Amino acid sequence: MAEAPPRRLGLGPPPGDAPRAELVALTAVQSEQGEAGGGGSPRRLGLLGSPLPPGAPLPGPGSGSGSACGQRSSAAHKRYRRLQNWVYNVLERPRGWAFVYHVFIFLLVFSCLVLSVLSTIQEHQELANECLLILEFVMIVVFGLEYIVRVWSAGCCCRYRGWQGRFRFARKPFCVIDFIVFVASVAVIAAGTQGNIFATSALRSMRFLQILRMVRMDRRGGTWKLLGSVVYAHSKELITAWYIGFLVLIFASFLVYLAEKDANSDFSSYADSLWWGTITLTTIGYGDKTPHTWLGRVLAAGFALLGISFFALPAGILGSGFALKVQEQHRQKHFEKRRMPAANLIQAAWRLYSTDMSRAYLTATWYYYDSILPSFRELALLFEHVQRARNGGLRPLEVRRAPVPDGAPSRYPPVATCHRPGSTSFCPGESSRMGIKDRIRMGSSQRRTGPSKQHLAPPTMPTSPSSEQVGEATSPTKVQKSWSFNDRTRFRASLRLKPRTSAEDAPSEEVA
């Protein structure tokens, strides 16, 4: 009796068929016929556990003709996506030579605008209408194809895939403007070719909807975003200037109206006075309405000098805001240009540092100066060695804690006790272990408590650290204090090793 083939788990290929790579489910599931010992083939499952149809090819690079078809379809799909992405970037994010197409579109729109203006002049109306009709045909074809291509290429973005995504893309403001202008152009052409009475009025009214094509030149909205950011950044200043200017306008108009309503027919109503105030304070000055009385002229002159300053403030605020924003954008561009080279330089330096163990090129690091100058660790070890030599091999803490019996001779020589300023008595072995921070803190506390006492003391002649007598400086308080830590004499004296002298005989010792 033939044995059933062993159940295979995992992703390994079956024996005897090495080139074939078959994806098997996580659990080997066989058909009921196979479990019962029949000759049925096992049921194939996909990666998600769903059964595959009987005629479906197995996924994998070596699955025969199905694999070749899959490779061809995958390559075609990649080319399709690449083309779609390229078209989308050309239309929505132009760079380099892609601006040539947008310059061509701008020339078409500008020519249409010029011809629309010439069509309103009686001398050039006939020729402009003929040229404009031909140009409209060209623009309908160009913009119609462009609109379709834009909607198709938007599928390269995830949020615009599918018919719902394309509809979302078509609802964008600039796409809506394109659609309105396209419909208006078709209506103008249809009305112009019919030759009816309505054609002339339709051409004159709907052609100027094509002015909206100038708005579509900035599809990404960079200028509007820049203007919005400047207004938002200086909103408080703008609101303040406009508010005060509006108050000056209504008060000036009302007072001039009261002064001129009886003697001047131009100011017969408050609305006429508001019109005069707006034209005057905005420095336009049509001259259609002028005050005639001396009181009205004085009020107009005073409020004009006051109001023009507030009406001119928004222009200066926006101008300075634009300058600052442009400078910030230039700085951001320079930062973006330098970020990648800086990151590459840091990575290269780290690779060199991690692979080169000698690091002989590091001549400006802490390790280099640590090898030249005595390190703080060596100074600490030197302090501890000196203290243990004086205390008979014991550390200062051990000397303080060691009990001394009554009447027993002390094995240590008597030492002079010292007192730290602002604290109780402490171990004499710690007097010379006072660090730089303690010395600086002690000097600052003395300056806070009594700076007036220092200038009363007789001035001391500054001497070099080499000429100081070591026996005289029994305490860190003898170090000359200065008002600034930048004094080199104080810094050098604080680094010197001060020996400890006994109370009975204080021989001067120098520590090399």
Rank of each mutant, 00 (worst) to 15 (best):
Q332K: 07
G64S: 11
G66R: 09
A252S: 03
L258V: 06
V103A: 07
Y101D: 01
P15A: 15
G321A: 00
L226Q: 00
V248M: 07
M214I: 12
C175G: 15
Q84E: 07
P61A: 05
E136V: 03
A21T: 04
P57A: 15
H330L: 09
I250F: 10
T200R: 03
L258M: 10
Y286F: 00
L23I: 03
A56S: 07
V87L: 08
I317L: 02
N85T: 15
F99Y: 11
P59T: 13
L132P: 03
V109G: 02
H234R: 00
Y286D: 00
M340K: 09
A170G: 04
Y101N: 00
V248A: 04
G165C: 00
C175W: 02
A300S: 08
L313M: 07
R43G: 08
Q210P: 15
G38E: 04
R166G: 03
A4G: 05
V183L: 14
P13L: 07
L132R: 12
P19R: 07
S73T: 10
T27A: 10
L47F: 03
I308M: 03
C158R: 15
E123K: 03
C69Y: 14
H334R: 00
L83M: 14
H234Q: 02
I197F: 10
S205R: 02
I250L: 05
I308N: 03
G62R: 08
F167I: 04
A187P: 09
Q125L: 07
S309F: 00
G16W: 05
R95G: 04
H334Y: 11
Q33H: 05
R216P: 03
I105L: 07
L227Q: 01
V141E: 03
R8S: 07
F267I: 02
R159H: 15
L247P: 01
P6A: 12
N344I: 02
D17Y: 03
I121N: 08
V151A: 03
E123G: 07
N344S: 05
R338W: 00
H102P: 05
L9I: 13
A128D: 06
A36S: 14
A323T: 01
C156G: 15
R44S: 04
V87I: 11
A304P: 00
A98P: 06
L47R: 10
L115R: 10
R20S: 01
L9H: 04
I346F: 01
G277A: 05
W275G: 00
F246C: 02
G40A: 13
F174C: 04
H334D: 01
Y80H: 05
L281V: 01
I189S: 05
Q84L: 02
F110L: 03
F169Y: 09
S268A: 08
W163G: 02
H102Q: 08
V298F: 09
P341Q: 03
Y243S: 01
R72G: 05
D178E: 15
W86L: 07
K337R: 00
R204P: 07
I134F: 12
A343V: 11
L47H: 08
W242S: 14
F251L: 09
F322V: 02
P173L: 09
V90A: 15
E92V: 03
R219S: 05
K261Q: 03
S74L: 15
G321V: 00
L203P: 07
P15H: 08
N196H: 04
H330Y: 03
M340L: 05
A300G: 14
W163L: 09
P57H: 15
L227M: 02
R43L: 07
I134M: 07
I189L: 02
P57S: 15
I239V: 07
A259G: 01
D178N: 01
R339W: 02
G307V: 00
Q33E: 13
P341L: 08
Q30P: 04
R166S: 07
P94H: 02
Q210K: 14
L212P: 03
A233E: 03
I105V: 12
I148S: 09
G222V: 01
K333E: 06
Y80D: 11
G321C: 00
A241D: 05
V298A: 09
V188I: 12
I148T: 10
H334L: 01
S309Y: 02
A76E: 12
C175F: 04
R81G: 13
P291T: 00
V176F: 01
A56V: 13
F143L: 12
S273T: 02
G287V: 00
I284N: 01
R72C: 15
P59A: 08
I211L: 04
L133H: 06
G144R: 00
P13T: 04
P314L: 01
M206I: 03
D288H: 00
V138E: 01
A98G: 04
Y286H: 00
G40C: 07
R8L: 12
G34C: 13
I211N: 03
I346T: 00
R44G: 08
P51A: 09
V183A: 07
Y232C: 11
V29G: 05
A199S: 04
D17E: 07
V138A: 06
G319C: 03
I239T: 06
F110Y: 08
T290P: 00
E3D: 07
P314T: 02
G38W: 03
R79H: 12
S119C: 02
S265Y: 04
I121M: 13
G96D: 15
L274V: 01
P53S: 12
H330D: 08
L318V: 01
S63T: 10
S153F: 00
P94R: 00
K78T: 12
A187D: 00
V231I: 13
G46C: 04
L132V: 14
A76S: 07
G285D: 00
W276L: 00
T120N: 07
S41C: 05
L91V: 11
T290K: 02
V230A: 03
R82C: 06
F254Y: 04
S309A: 15
R95S: 13
G12R: 04
Q33L: 09
H77N: 12
G34V: 03
P51T: 03
L107W: 03
V149D: 00
I239M: 05
P13A: 08
F303L: 02
S273P: 00
G319S: 15
D272H: 02
F322L: 09
E35A: 04
A75G: 13
R8G: 14
V117G: 12
P54R: 12
G287S: 00
L108M: 08
V138M: 10
F182C: 11
M206V: 04
A128V: 05
R207C: 01
G245E: 05
P6L: 04
G296V: 01
K337E: 02
P314R: 01
L306Q: 02
P57R: 15
P314H: 02
R150G: 01
E22V: 06
V326A: 01
H234Y: 02
A252D: 02
A36V: 15
S111R: 02
R331P: 02
L226M: 02
N129Y: 06
L145M: 05
D218E: 15
A75S: 13
F198L: 05
N89D: 15
F179C: 05
K236M: 02
P54L: 12
S111T: 05
E123V: 11
R95L: 02
S67F: 14
C157S: 15
V141L: 11
G165D: 00
C112S: 04
G10V: 15
R150L: 12
L45R: 12
L115P: 06
S235N: 04
V109A: 02
C156R: 07
F174V: 15
L48R: 08
K333M: 00
R297G: 01
R331L: 00
Q71H: 08
Q327L: 01
A315V: 02
W242R: 01
S235G: 02
G296C: 00
K172Q: 08
L324Q: 00
A343T: 05
E92A: 01
E32Q: 05
A18D: 04
A301S: 11
L9P: 04
G321S: 00
F311S: 00
E130K: 03
L113M: 09
